[in-house]
Every structure is written in C-alpha cells, then in structure tokens.
Computed example of a mutant assay.
Amino acid sequence: MRDFIKFRKIHPLILVLFLLSSIICSLCLSSSSLNPTPLCLPNDKSALLQFKNTMSIDDSFSDINYYPKTNSWNESTDCCSWEGVSCDKATGQVIGLDLSCSLLVGSLHPNTTLFHLQGLKRLNLAHNNFNDSSIPFGLSQLVSLKDLNLSFSSFSGLIPSDISFLTKLTSLDLSENDQSFDSHSFEKLTRNLSELDNLFLDSVNMSDVVPTPSKTCLHL
C-alpha cells in the first residue's frame, strides 16, 4: 500500500514531464518546418551538371587517393549533397568545389559553366588532367573566389591576366604545370591581389619576371 501511494505521488510528475517533452518536440518540428535547409540553387545545379558532361573520367588510373567525385552527381538529388560540393547553409548557393584527385580528363573552355557559379569562394581542381590546355580567360567572373588551386593538372601556356581581377583571393596555387607568366601579367597580379597571402608557383616559367618584394609568401 505504501508503494502504491508513492507511485500515485510520482505519477503526476511523470505526466507533466511527458507533456513538456511533447510540447518541446512540437516546437522543434515547427521551427524546422519554418526554416528548412535550403536546396541547391537550380542554376548552380545546372551549371555543375553541364560541367560534368564536358569532362571524361580516367578509369585506367589506379590509386586509392584518386576517385571520380562527380559520379555522385545526378539530376535526382540535391547538389549540396554531392561529393566535393559545399553550399551556403542559409541560401543554398554553391560556395565550394573540391574536385581534386577526381580523375577528370578534358579541357576548360572560356564558356565553361563553372564560371556561372557566382557565389564560389573555393575552387580546387588539383591533380586532374586538362590535356595541356590553357587556363581559360574568364576566371575573373568568379568574383567571390578566395582560394584557387589548379596545381598538378596538366595546364599549359600563358597564365591569363584576368586572374589579377580576382581581388578577394587569399591563396593561389598554379604549381607543377607547364605554364608561364609574362612580366605584365605578373606585375598586375602582385599589384591587384592585395589580399593574397599564399602564392604557389613551383615549376611555373618565370624567366620573364623579376619578382618584387611583397607581403605574399611566394613559392617558386
């Protein structure tokens, strides 16, 4: 009988706790429905899929550190969930693209849809095979870019001068490609990229350039 009396005293407290937890869960569900995680922007998704369709995958290359990230990209899923893609949590805009070591083979053209990703802050295409093509003129369209890595990707020719218009860049890696700077382009780069902290140019032909001292960490 004493135990039964104790249970009757405790029972109302359990009921109150249950009701409180139910109310809290309802509020959480209501909040999440009012503020759902935004999906990838349709234009960004289209741009990524079109870029994927211009590239091939080198299936013959065997290395556990290399794998085709773009294989996870398809029309039926949200592009913010795709391998190598990062999105702004508030807007759904694509802000990061890391396709390093993705076995990509092809060429970047001036009309590549990658340049449509206006919110892109980080672009990493390192360790792919761009068939000794030139880095296309047009990178300056990526006005938000802060980090650009095109190293070890079989680019060749002159480095386009419009890279110097990416004034928000803090890190630029063009190393280990068969490329070169002319004096005018390099002078523009060092003058305009005032936010640049790291510049990697290992194996880049700098024979026409005399580097001038700056705050930039220059790796030649």
Rank of each mutant, 00 (worst) to 15 (best):
K45N: 13
S46V: 09
S46K: 01
A47Q: 05
A47M: 11
A47K: 03
A47R: 04
L48W: 03
L48C: 15
L49G: 00
Q50V: 11
Q50H: 08
F51H: 04
K52C: 05
N53W: 02
N53D: 12
N53Q: 12
T54F: 12
T54V: 12
T54Y: 13
M55T: 04
M55F: 09
M55S: 15
S56F: 13
I57E: 03
I57W: 02
I57H: 01
D58E: 13
D59E: 05
S60L: 03
S60F: 00
F61Q: 02
F61G: 01
F61N: 07
S62K: 10
D63W: 10
D63E: 12
D63A: 14
D63H: 09
I64D: 10
N65C: 15
Y66N: 02
Y67Q: 14
Y67E: 02
Y67H: 13
P68F: 05
K69P: 01
K69I: 04
K69S: 02
K69V: 02
K69G: 09
T70Q: 03
T70P: 00
N71P: 05
S72W: 06
S72H: 14
W73D: 04
N74V: 08
E75N: 07
S76K: 04
S76N: 15
T77S: 09
T77I: 09
T77D: 07
D78K: 05
D78S: 09
D78Q: 04
D78L: 04
D78T: 12
C80L: 05
W82I: 01
W82C: 03
E83S: 15
G84D: 07
V85T: 01
S86A: 07
C87W: 00
C87K: 02
D88K: 14
D88T: 12
D88F: 15
K89E: 09
A90S: 10
A90D: 10
T91P: 06
T91S: 08
Q93I: 05
V94I: 11
I95N: 05
I95M: 08
I95D: 06
G96N: 08
G96D: 11
G96L: 06
G96I: 07
L97P: 03
D98L: 15
D98Y: 05
L99P: 10
S100T: 13
S100I: 04
S100L: 14
C101H: 15
S102L: 03
S102K: 06
S102G: 14
L103R: 13
L103K: 11
L104M: 11
V105A: 05
G106E: 15
G106D: 10
